[in-house]
Design a protein around this nucleic acid. Structure first.
Lengths: 343, 343
DNA sequence: GCATGGCGGGAGAGCGCTCTCCACAAACCG
DNA sequence: CGGTTTGTGGAGAGCGCTCTCCCGCCATGC
């Protein structure tokens, strides 16, 4: 392989100027069809590939975006943040949705983790250096300072989930309360009378909303008090929470669990205690993640259109990159109930 | 935010030439400490951030690498390849290891999926355009044509796992046969007499090696025939395989399962059939993935240092990028047995 | 007939950086 | 003390592309 051909080489081969070749490649302005054809052939002959650095030097666009997963957790040498993140099928779905939208447009996300202050600083300077035009951000914590930092640096960005503080930034989210209501209605319709819930970490807005939505809906059904144990959205915390719930409320016959991973853990504990699901205890999860179909019995859950939301997040970001003055928007998706075996 | 400051601006502020500022930033050649200090202050004052496009235009380096997940599977609209990929904790560990190595060096991987021919072409042209200096590649299939394509395009790349065909490319791998032998020895030492195995998809070299290694070791222990059912490395296929094994070999007392995800499925089926694990049937998995500790009983498994391997893969790639003439190398890691509850 | 305008192509000026070359001064040698 | 070496800063030529300007051509209008 010799030195890569440049625009100049193609122009020479086609017998036209550099500018004309550029026009053909970028489809800008009219170019005589015959010349267009000649140029295309020259491109194919020389095996020309545009140089991205040169292009983005002048256009001030990189054609890349960052997919940032942020939290405020501590990094642990033995079990770094990013390995935990991937253990949650939720992030896989987000990545999948983002890639699904971006790939047909020839753009690929740069994966970044931002769990420490240092890492967050790195994210900002990375974007400022022009490694990417903007960022889609998934936060695991409502206290995450990164959204604010992004806004302050005037970097185009879109969040997955409403920001913890009121800052002018676009985001996508799901109607958590509606989802929780769906779960409540289903449990009540099945005839559950002694219902409890396992919530997510209550410093996460989504967890707060799911809990509040569930309690409101149950109250409307005449159940003003719903026992609750807080989990951490992890498998193991679901087990622990279920153990506790069972010891405190041995007579329960229905549980709403704020995500599928915890529900999976809860299921195991219920079986371990000899409770049949759904006959003795009905369980409703949240997310409709891969854990929902992997657990036995399969989970009845609230479908959270994560991939669609992630795709929309990418779409919004591209819009912001294209028109910097565009006003911030939020897009809220409606969840739905998926009935399987557990309730 | 006004126009971003350039090297020129910093030079003016510091009262030196552009070249000197560049030298300070890149730490190349000696620069008078006093001037160095002045320059640093000027950088801080102006809030200067080097422009990556301009830099890589002249250095012909992007300082980015691609993390490619490739297979030869068909893309399915409803359940795209990349969402399945993330369902396997294995890929999360690879990503984690790669990020762990790269991040301290200020570089972040670009995430790409290459499951169709079209997508593979896109990967190649993406790299040729200079979006990244090289690629680390995780293939799900030994027939994957991408490694060859990368070699032909002379793009620096490193594989996770030995390539299916003999091509000159660097890779990291684990000694699958040794791992399988560890499992065999453990089962035999526990007193298992009627042992079977659930293999991975046999078009994957790793699956072939694990099966061959297990059979060889069992043969050495005096068990020349080991029943085997092929799975797909997925949870569901582990269930199916275990059902089949149980119907064909009702008397079995030990199973070696080629990965943890399938082992998790197998565990569930065994319990469903009333077999106690490990009392009635001992189960050994492979990978020591998050599934190993998430299953109940927790899996005894072969530890596969995936994060270390992924980090090494990134290290090798950076070496190849730095010295293009560097000969290809392979690094083989040794697995180890992790005894938990299932055997 | 000549002025007018639209259209398609070329020339060339940068984008912000690195790096080679050169100038100059100080240090060193015989 | 001249000549060489060494060490440090500046000048300036690009890297490969886009995009503005300009120019020539032909069709059109009066």
């Amino acid at each position: 392989m010799t030195a890569a051909p440049t625009l100049e080489d193609v122009a020479r081969a086609a017998g036209v100027s550099r500018a004309t070749v550029s026009r053909v490649i970028n489809g800008i302005r009219n170019v005589d069809p015959a010349i267009q054809e000649t140029v295309r052939r020259a491109i194919a002959d020389t095996g020309y590939v545009p140089n991205r650095a040169a292009r983005s030097l002048v256009t001030r666009r990189t054609g890349a975006i960052a997919l940032v997963v942020s939290g405020a957790g501590e990094e642990d040498e033995a079990n770094p943040f990013h390995s935990q993140v991937f253990a949650d099928p939720f992030f896989g779905r987000v990545a999948s949705g983002v890639v699904g939208f971006l790939r047909p447009r020839g753009i690929h996300p740069i994966l970044m983790f931002a769990e420490t202050d240092e890492a967050r600083t790195q994210v900002i300077s990375f974007l400022r250096q022009g490694y990417a035009d903007g960022a889609v951000l998934v936060s695991t914590q409502s206290r995450d300072p990164l959204p604010r930092q992004l806004v302050e640096a005037a970097l185009p960005s879109v969040l997955f989930a409403r920001p913890g503080e009121a800052i002018p930034i676009s985001y996508v989210d799901v109607a958590h309360r509606t989802g929780a209501k769906l779960a409540a209605d289903h449990l009540v319709a099945r005839g559950c009378r002694r219902v409890a819930t396992i919530a997510g970490p209550l410093d996460v807005l989504a967890a707060q909303d799911r809990l509040a939505g569930f309690r409101d809906a149950m109250a409307a059904h005449g159940h003003p008090y719903i026992p609750c144990v807080e989990g951490q959205f992890t498998y193991a915390s679901g087990e622990t929470a279920m153990e506790r719930l069972l010891s405190e409320q041995p007579g329960l016959d229905g549980v709403f669990v704020a995500n599928d991973l915890m529900a999976q853990g809860a299921l195991l504990v219920l079986r371990h205690h000899g409770r049949r699901v759904p006959e003795d205890v009905a369980v409703v999860g949240f997310d409709d993640s891969s854990a929902a179909t992997a657990s036995r019995p399969m989970l009845t859950t609230i479908r959270h259109p994560v991939e669609d939301m992630a795709a929309e997040m990418a779409r919004l970001l591209l819009e912001h990159v294209d028109e910097p003055g565009k006003p911030m928007t939020s897009v809220i998706f409606e969840p739905s109930l998926v009935v399987r075996e557990s309730a």
